[in-house]
């Protein structure tokens, strides 16, 4: 009798013990003016305003910040993505594989790499790439591009990204927000973050 009563209690406390650390290390505040390394790399950012860092990483070498909440105004950092690696964490390596970066990938391939990844990972049927142009990022020739897509929740979202290939490895910062209101409102905050990016 006692045993059968005790069992669920033990199970619950075990579950609590497992989930507790995750709950404690939830989202972090990124304070304005402080330099932080992002996406577990040597890429560092000194944001001119406060941001929230989400504890859930979209990929192994990725990190997402937001101002008002996930998917409202997201900045995602991807760093050191090597040839053969996908941009995001694959849901299933076998059943839902994502496109991989290639050793012969060019800057012009990056928008299509992002498009393929988004389409496959988020189940997006309507996605269109906008203008792309050459620019400088981390002191190297880079690509800046825009895109627009409809998520399964039927919201049109817009994105802007900047990317560079350093010895074949991809470094990219993206900004994704609903086209309605949020994209325009915080695009300059994103650009300020990009402008503060430095790499060791």
């Amino acid at each position: 009798m006692l045993k059968s009563l005790l069992k669920p209690v033990l199970l619950i406390s075990a579950a609590a013990a497992l989930t507790a650390p995750a709950a404690l290390s939830a989202n972090d505040l990124i304070k304005s003016g402080e330099t932080v390394a992002v996406a577990k790399s040597t890429l560092s950012i000194t944001p001119p305003r406060d941001w929230n860092k989400l504890s859930a990483r979209p990929g192994k070498k990725a990190e997402t910040w937001t101002l008002d909440g996930e998917q409202l105004n997201d900045i995602s950092f991807y760093s050191d993505i090597a040839p053969g690696e996908p941009l995001l964490r694959e849901r299933s390596k076998k059943r839902d594989p994502l496109p991989k970066l290639r050793s012969n990938s060019l800057l012009t391939d990056v928008p299509e790499f992002l498009e393929g990844t988004y389409r496959a990972h988020f189940g997006i049927a309507v996605f269109s790439l906008g203008a792309s142009k050459p620019t400088k990022f981390l002191n190297e020739p880079a690509i800046q591009f825009t895109y627009e897509y409809v998520t399964p929740d039927e919201l049109t979202r817009r994105g802007e990204a900047i990317a560079v290939l350093r010895s074949g490895k991809l470094f990219m910062i993206t900004y994704d927000a609903p086209k309605l209101h949020f994209f325009e409102r915080n695009i300059e905050d994103y650009r300020a973050v990009v402008a503060s990016a430095k790499i060791a």
Binding site: Q71, R91, S92, R95, D96, A120, H121, F122, G123, T151, P152, D153, E154
Partner: peptide, 13 residues
């Protein structure tokens, strides 16, 4: 139908 969040893949679809 109401859209189950943006992490839906074609697999779920």
């Amino acid at each position: 139908t109401y859209g189950g969040g943006s992490t839906q893949s074609y697999g779920d679809f």
